[in-house]
């Protein structure tokens, strides 16, 4: 069980949006994490250094939050390693084939009113809802 946290959800979402806007205003690029991460792998293209710097910023975030607040960043990650590896493979394949993830399609693409991003977002949301319904209420129920 997790509690509904409307204020931190709105504040965190606004920070995500601010980062996406600044990346467009300054660098002219979409803040799509799957695109940024996927292009860190060979064959390398122009801008690999900037993408690596962005990912290092993501990785530094929990340490920064812990240093500023003095509190641990808490999370509950499944310890089922074959399940997590399989899920990671699906997320990697799916975001590369579908040209984006929650950030690239769900935030940046919808903000640009892209029809591809609308279809992708509705599809991955529906697949996510259906997957959790099956794992928690059909198989695990």
């Amino acid at each position: 069980m997790t509690t509904f946290t409307p204020l931190s959800a709105l504040a965190g979402g606004a920070l995500i949006g601010l980062s996406a806007v600044l990346l467009m205003l300054l660098e002219g690029r979409i803040a799509g994490i799957s695109g940024i991460a996927g292009r860190l792998l060979p064959p390398w293209q122009a801008g690999a250094g900037q993408r690596l710097a962005f990912v290092l910023g993501l990785i530094a975030a929990p340490f920064t939050v812990e240093a500023v607040t003095g509190a641990r960043v808490l999370q509950t990650v499944s310890g089922n390693l074959p399940l997590m590896a399989g899920a990671g493979l699906l997320v990697g394949l799916g975001t590369a084939l579908g040209s984006g993830c929650t950030s690239g399609h769900g935030v940046c693409g919808l903000a640009r009113l892209s029809p591809r991003s609308l279809v992708a977002t509705l599809t991955f949301m529906a697949a996510g809802f259906l997957t959790v319904f099956i794992t928690r209420h059909v198989i695990g129920g």
Binding site: I59, Q75, V77, V91, L93, A126, A127
Partner: peptide, 26 residues
Amino acid sequence: RLVGGAALFGIGWGLSGFCPGPALVS
């Protein structure tokens, strides 16, 4: 490819609770 890719991503997201950004942050 767009729809199939998004569907595969959604299944992986629903199995793990991770999409790419939160996974890298973690």
